[in-house]
Amino acid sequence: MIVDIITAILMVIGSALVCIAGLGLLRMPDLIIRMHASTKAGTLGAGLVLAAVGIHFVDVAVASRAVAAILFLLLTAPVAAHMIGRAAYRTDLKLWERNIMDELRESETLRRREAEVQAQNARDAGSTSSSSAP
């Protein structure tokens, strides 16, 4: 009975967090702030639901699989967010107009990375590389 109550509470709180993460994804002003919502609230929500599964079945095999799934989510969610954020920043990211500072824009790193990717693209294009740099 107590196990049932804990399962129900974890499940509902987790689902509510995922739902609110979705709301954040919809109404936050720019891409990176949206990723704050979907990465943190979404991961914790899914983690709580998986924890509910692990507790519900009172079984070590199921619980260890649930723990593995939670660890995997915790490991991959920030990596995915980092990849998307980096890709978006290098291409066509528009930051919110109330953004107050951007130390990356002024840095050398960004320029060098862009040149690298562009050169790589040119190499891939082969003989047409001269037309891609007008």
Partner: peptide, 15 residues
């Protein structure tokens, strides 16, 4: 980002 979120959501759904 939306697709990534939907994957996480599907994982919770299945759980």
């Amino acid at each position: 980002v939306a697709l990534d979120f939907i994957t996480v959501l599907a994982v919770s759904f299945i759980a």
